[in-house]
Computed example of a mutant assay.
Amino acid sequence: MATSNEEAHRIAREQGVSGPLYRVVKLVATLVIRLLCGFTATGREHVPATGPVVIVPNHKSFWDPFFVAIVLRRPVHFMGKAEHFEGPLAKVFLRLGAFPVRRGASDAEAMETARAILRRGDALALFPEGTRVREEGLGTPKRGAARLAIEAGAPLVPATITGTEKRRWPLPRRVRIVFGTPVSVEGLAATPEDAATAIGAAWPQVSEEYTRWQNRPGVVAAGLAALGLGAWLGWRRRQR
């Protein structure tokens, strides 16, 4: 039986995560991903163990929410495309912390569900770029996540994800997540200006860590080697 959009939001607001189901799925997912993929996570101590918190990671892959969820000790809620909640697994997704959002327009229902999750004292992860950024580098962060954090009095925790770029299947390899220093929203108002100030304090941590990791010596050396190989192949073609 299909779950309506209204019913999905009601479940997300009133029931939230199913503890036993979440723990079982997280355990299985962690074992599978650790075996097939491998990942590291640092800075988890920056995510409060209790109380409302808004985590703001960069977004490169379908897999990003899974990695954020399995490395943290507490359940995390995510927005997901409304289309994912139209099938028979909708209630499973809802009890695992996901809830629907309609893309391409402002979704007041999704925003109210996000507020309900934070009022409940739960953790919410939102990708401030708004969608997956497929090209090189990161996108420009939007203010919505920061505004929700200000309304709830919740800290903003930046998170940098590397290793998931351009990979959907098979699983990405050597994924790395770094949780940065929380940004306090104390004293800020839920205005566009203050929301821009808050996300502007959090996002540089993501951008700088992402750039630093992409520019590490091993990647640079590999890039130079690839350029050298390309130049050599071009020279060989010209000699024929």
Rank of each mutant, 00 (worst) to 15 (best):
E186W: 14
S184D: 06
D194I: 15
A198I: 12
A82K: 14
A123G: 07
G80L: 14
A149T: 10
G180D: 07
G153L: 14
R95P: 07
K60I: 09
R13S: 07
V206F: 01
R176I: 12
F179P: 00
A198Y: 12
F85Q: 01
G230N: 03
I150H: 01
A198L: 13
G139H: 04
G38E: 02
R34A: 10
F85A: 00
V28C: 02
R147M: 11
P65W: 03
W235R: 01
E209P: 02
E83W: 13
P52F: 04
L227I: 04
L31Y: 15
Q205L: 08
I117L: 09
I11E: 04
A108F: 15
P204A: 08
G87S: 11
I33R: 02
L171V: 14
F127V: 00
A2N: 09
G200D: 06
L138P: 05
Y210W: 14
P192R: 07
P88G: 10
F66H: 04
W232C: 03
R10E: 10
G163A: 08
R95Q: 09
V220I: 15
A190S: 10
L126G: 00
F127T: 00
A110K: 12
R10T: 11
I117D: 05
V25N: 06
F127S: 01
L27G: 06
V28N: 02
E45G: 06
P57F: 08
I177R: 00
F39E: 04
E109W: 14
R176Y: 15
E7M: 03
R167C: 08
N5K: 13
R237H: 11
L126K: 00
G104M: 04
A154S: 06
T162V: 10
L36T: 08
L156Y: 05
L148C: 01
F179H: 00
I161Y: 05
F93K: 05
G130H: 01
R212H: 15
A114Q: 05
K26P: 04
W203Q: 01
K166D: 10
E83V: 02
G187Y: 15
V157Q: 04
P217E: 03
V56G: 00
P182D: 06
L31F: 15
P20M: 11
L72D: 03
T140W: 02
E6L: 10
S61R: 09
M1C: 08
S106F: 14
H77S: 12
V157H: 03
